[in-house]
Design a binder for these strands. Structure first.
Lengths: 385, 385
DNA sequence: TTGTCGGCCATATGCCGACAA
DNA sequence: TTGTCGGCATATGGCCGACAA
């Protein structure tokens, strides 16, 4: 099975990471991971996958053979295709090439800024109000002696397509704005208020990039606090029909899940597409994390803490909670599966950001979590406290 | 395996048939059919499917367990989900409920009209020039004493969504036009000149329906005579990106093909999605047709005739030709497969329509055909002459 | 510092009859 | 009968500073 190229060209990993979010974890080539078919199935776009053989283990140890960083041609979402080879438990040493230093270097090579779009930003006929920090740190400096100070920005999106924006500093009081070109971008990407725009600058070359993140709605706990309902959906029966892809939850074909699980269970190399989205669980998890968790004695009352990024990636906040139930299926096809074995009750959380997380303090977190389930914004790690 | 419901609601079979085209053949529930994995694979949207087991027979006898008439939520194409159970050759009697009479009755219950859109019809800011016959036979009669004669039409599309069009009879000389509402429809359905609109009226209730058929381009012989190139594609790198689905050829996920073929080979019930499109071969074919063809001694020089509908379904035309080669693979995974075993050379064709088929008289038909391959417009049957 | 609003201008949309194929 | 065009009215897009949060 060759990794298919039909989904488009590979994305520069540096840009990919900046657009997907800095806390997204993609296991490096050579590392050991566990593949969770149940988690994969949760990403299917319709129904439950059909497994030809009934004996699909709940988790399968694999080695990462390759990783491709890609972009969804319809939604612009960053996603990764990971090529996995099932391996034995005894094969327990990572063969990762340790290039952490190199990674750090290149990561410092970009600077990025995320803004959640206001209604004014996303309105038809409107421009984009550029926060001061973005204008100063990302965009080229304007010539402020001109009247008005103005320049044309040439920015590439995740596909490498070029977009042009007029960047002007005007108004009383003065502020930075993107005018001409912005509206076309918003319409083309089908952005609505609540979505985010990511502006990225490669510090060495000065090249500019722009990415989008869709507002997380319609999944799990996120659904409860969001006040923006299905504004992207067809509002009247005679609507334009152009935004229908918004209704689909999963991004992965049901049959692709079934096929991957089948091949994994047979010990054959297989490929999975991972869409890192807030509120969706990773189903390919570093083996070290799974193994550390499996040695933990989970019991009701265990207190846990979860670090996660806010939606605009500007800060990291914490969930704190108590495990309220531990469920390991005792029968059925998934007997003994740790997937979503934990359910936590959240309490007494201290946040260092106010806006986005405040409503969540009032709800019971019902997600069952093995390790990385309670995503909100993006979860980075679970710590027992 | 339950037929999934995620693709949308079922379409009224009468409306479905009128929109798909009257010559589209969907095998009835209970009938025996042959499933051709190779033909199915030709409908995959990327690469070649991965077959887990290598022994996939080239054709598998099945019984039709159920048929669902559906509509693609993105392209509005009519397609069918057919649920098939592999059966033995000895199980040779159809269990079809003979409801031909009933079918005939209901088919007479609708009247439809197809028009290929002119540039003026598909232009932005333009209306739709309603042919006289359509206005007379499909739309409600206007009040011609009014000045101008005008009415509002309320028409449902294949999804049941309501569209409103202003139908006016004006101009000098007088003619029927759809004005207000038409442009929104064209933009929403992404119609371009060359595509077709189908207007349907249920004679009993007077209810109106509208469907679309995309111009057949990019496949086989159709590609050679069409002069309209990829006008729907993104023209600039900063384009809107809204028409990208036009680039995809197949409509079926590669993994779905692999899974269906696997299950068919194992004798398990499976489901396939069939998109009846001109230029694409049916991969689920009535058993009687396949068996009749397999008793035929095919040889180079055999003269064949093929009836087919013109694109606007108004008339039936004929291809005539001579078999120029007969190829049965002698080795490889598809040894002995009849799929596309015939290649025909076209000659001396007599058409009873002029416009759409005339260029095809000048080309060599290179398609290899088992039975139903030389689709142009829509092929209905091959006859040895 | 930055989100939203009303004003105002430019452009695009879209209805029309004229005319010709 | 019907496809295409130019004219013209109107709607929408989109840039602007004012003002307030």
């Amino acid at each position: 099975m060759q990794p298919s190229t039909a989904a488009g060209n590979d994305v520069d990993p540096i840009i990919w990471r900046a657009i997907a979010g800095n806390s997204v974890q993609i296991p490096p080539v050579g590392s050991r991971v566990y593949y969770f078919p149940q988690g994969h199935a949760e990403h299917a776009n319709s129904g439950s996958p059909v497994f030809l053989s009934l004996a699909i283990p709940p988790f399968i140890l694999c080695r990462v053979l390759s990783v491709r960083f890609l972009a969804d041609s319809v939604t612009d979402e960053a996603f990764a295709k990971i090529f996995l080879l099932p391996i034995n438990q005894s094969d327990d040493n990572d063969v990762t090439i340790n290039d952490d230093d190199a990674d750090d270097d290149v990561e410092k090579d970009v600077v990025s800024f995320v803004k959640i779009l206001t209604p004014s930003d996303a309105n038809n006929g409107g421009g984009f109000s550029v926060p001061r920090f973005c204008a100063d740190s990302i965009f080229p400096r304007l010539n402020f002696v001109a009247e008005p100070p103005v320049q044309n920005l040439v920015i590439r999106d995740i596909h490498g397509c070029i977009w042009e924006f007029r960047h002007i500093y005007r108004g009383t009081p003065r502020r930075h704005l993107l005018t001409t070109g912005w509206s076309k971008f918003v319409n083309s990407k089908k952005l609505v208020s609540g979505d985010s725009a990511v502006f990225i600058r490669k510090t060495r070359t000065g090249e500019l990039y722009v990415g989008v993140r869709r507002a997380t709605r319609g999944n799990d706990i996120c659904q409860r606090w969001t006040s923006t309902l299905l504004r992207r959906e067809q509002t009247s029966s005679a609507g334009t029909g152009e935004v229908r892809w918004r209704t689909g939850q999963g991004r992965v074909a049901t049959e692709a899940v079934a096929q991957a699980a089948e091949m994994a269970a047979r010990g054959m190399a297989f490929e999975v597409s991972c869409y890192p989205r807030a509120g969706w669980a990773d189903f390919v998890v570093r083996a070290e994390i799974v193994e550390a968790s499996s040695t933990m004695f989970w019991t009701v009352g265990t207190r846990v803490k979860m670090a996660m990024e806010t939606e605009d990636s500007s800060r990291t906040a914490c969930f704190q909670g108590t495990v309220s139930s531990v469920i390991l299926p005792e029968s059925g096809p998934w007997r003994g599966s740790p997937w979503r074995m934990l359910q936590a009750f959240e309490h007494g959380t201290v946040y260092d950001t106010a806006l986005d997380l405040r409503v969540a303090t009032e709800v019971v977190v019902e997600e069952r979590t093995a390790l990385k389930q309670l995503e909100f914004g993006r979860l980075s790690v679970v710590v027992v406290i």
